[in-house]
């Protein structure tokens, strides 16, 4: 079977997975939370409440409510987000690109540090470089994210500022005053990309400064995971017979390591990067909350705290779509890396 046929079949399956996810989350949120909460306040007159209930079908049986919800989902009428103070589709359009921006920077840091460190660790097995990188990754895995985030804020914002050094912003996505002076049109919603494409480099730089600390926080744990995985995968591959063969045929070490070994070793690493990427795109709840970074994690955290069932539902569906798509992507990369895989 050709790879695109496989992709199409997987996209069909993707629909069913998301369908299943909506059933479960819909039932949980409708049963546990008050769907009305998004539409009324203490001051809403009682007859208006009844009208709202009827308008949204909250008086119907739950399966009918589900179909109403499904219809709204497909027609992109996702309702109101209380915590976002806007329609949910708009909220996602606003918050998701922020997370994408953060995720891309974090995954770049993760891969650029994790993979080379793992390779060095494997090639210098049991030498000091290996021990150093293993300690580093163990520290990365062990440090709690909230502690690291707060420490970075302390070190690079408060402390550097207190001794008069240049410092990094500790919260938010961009300096609002600066944004008013240098307005950016929202093309993709990714502020850094938009401002860069529009030649508004003041904002690009400011957004980048805001991204540094949360991206490092988000990347740190994953760097540790990826370093370990790359190390063990590489160690396994360089013990394989085909590496001995390449050596026995006098191939240069450069070719043996970076061509023959790396392609084999990268197969499990790609899976892991895919999962990490999917996880990050779903929003890093702790990181985004610490840095008050207006992304999906921050939105979902507030939705859960304030019982905003509409937002929770939408969030779960978005995360499900992201995860299934990333998995599909990983599978396609797999087939390209490893010719033994047939679909």
């Amino acid at each position: 079977m050709k790879i695109y046929e496989y992709a199409i079949r997987r996209i069909f399956l993707l629909i069913f997975v998301i369908f299943g996810v909506t059933i479960i989350t819909f039932i949980f949120t409708r049963v546990l939370l008050n769907p009305l909460a998004a539409y009324i306040t203490d001051k809403t007159p009682p007859d208006a409440v009844i009208a709202i209930i009827q308008a949204h079908g909250f008086d119907r049986p739950i399966y009918e409510q589900y179909f109403i919800y499904l219809k709204d989902l497909v027609t992109l009428d996702w309702g109101w987000s209380n915590v976002g103070h806007m329609a949910l589709t708009d909220a996602i359009r606003t918050f998701f690109p922020a997370t994408v921006e953060l995720t891309i920077l974090a995954i770049i840091i993760t891969v650029l540090i994790g993979v080379p460190l793992g390779i060095i660790s494997a090639l210098k097995n049991n030498k000091w470089q290996d021990h150093a990188s293993r300690i580093f990754s163990l520290v990365g895995i062990s440090i709690p994210v909230f502690w690291l985030g707060l420490s970075l804020q302390y070190a690079f914002t408060y402390w550097t500022r207190s001794i008069g050094l240049p410092f990094l912003p500790s919260t938010g996505r961009v300096d609002p005053l600066l944004l008013i002076q240098n307005p950016v049109q929202g093309w993709t919603g990714m502020l850094m990309l938009d401002s860069f494409l529009q030649g508004n480099f003041v904002i690009t730089l400011d957004v980048f400064k805001h991204l540094i600390l949360p991206a490092i926080t988000l990347a740190f744990l994953n760097v540790g995971i990826l370093t370990r995985l790359t190390r063990s995968s590489m160690l396994e591959v360089i013990r394989q017979d085909y590496i001995t063969m390449a050596k026995a045929y006098g191939l240069p070490r450069r070719v043996i390591i970076y061509k023959y070994a790396l392609k084999n070793a990268m197969i499990p690493v790609i899976t892991s990067v895919g999962l990490i990427f999917g996880g990050m795109l779903g929003g890093a709840i702790i990181t985004e909350s610490i840095f008050s970074y207006p992304g999906m994690g921050w939105l979902s955290y507030r939705a859960i705290v304030f019982n905003d069932s509409n937002t929770i539902l939408a969030y779960v569906v978005v995360v499900a779509i992201i995860f299934v798509s990333v998995n599909l992507l990983v599978d396609i990369i797999y087939a390209w890396l490893d010719p033994r895989i047939k679909y």
Partner: peptide, 11 residues
């Protein structure tokens, strides 16, 4: 080598 199955790089 001994085992032709493992001495050629699979990818």
């Amino acid at each position: 080598f001994q085992d032709p199955h493992t001495y050629l790089n699979p990818v």
